[in-house]
């Protein structure tokens, strides 16, 4: 299960993900992170059965947590099945099926946004913004 964690760094640099790993014993894999001087956003992947305890621990440490499920949306009326998105996706979310129709494994997505930016037909968007 993927979690989007946002946190403020105003109160100083707390190693919150390291602390979650130590306190919960859950092996967190960080798939994408963007951290600057005042705030940070990290997309983490954890086993499904641990998401409650990880979420609670992160919340205790002052981070905002959101579960991500199939965050990327494909507008089939705009998509022409060209496949421009296939090779640029770091997670291999996109592929062609036997009919050369675009197939999407949305749960693999880490929201890097590349495909949204380059889709020639503007057929891809983030669900929360769609």
């Amino acid at each position: 299960m993927k979690l989007l964690v946002t946190f403020s760094r105003k109160e100083g640099k707390k190693p919150i993900i390291a602390q979650v790993v130590r306190d919960t014993g859950v092996l967190v894999s960080v798939e994408r992170a963007l951290i600057d001087s005042s705030e940070g956003e990290a997309l983490i992947d954890i086993p499904d059965d641990t998401c409650r305890i990880v979420r609670d621990k992160l919340a205790d440490l002052g981070a905002a947590v959101r579960f991500l499920e199939e965050e990327i949306a494909l507008d089939e009326s705009e998509c022409v099945d060209c496949g421009a998105c296939i090779s640029i996706c770091p997670q291999e979310v996109f592929s062609f099926d036997e009919e050369s129709k675009l197939h999407m494994d949305a749960e693999k997505c880490v929201l890097c946004g590349r495909c949204i930016e380059i889709c020639p037909h503007r057929a891809l968007s983030r669900k929360s913004e769609a």
Partner: peptide
């Protein structure tokens, strides 16, 4: 190994 992207649509060509 390198992955490919088509920019044209084979499905629509068919």
């Amino acid at each position: 190994e390198v992955r490919t992207s088509s920019l044209s649509s084979l499905r629509r060509a068919r």
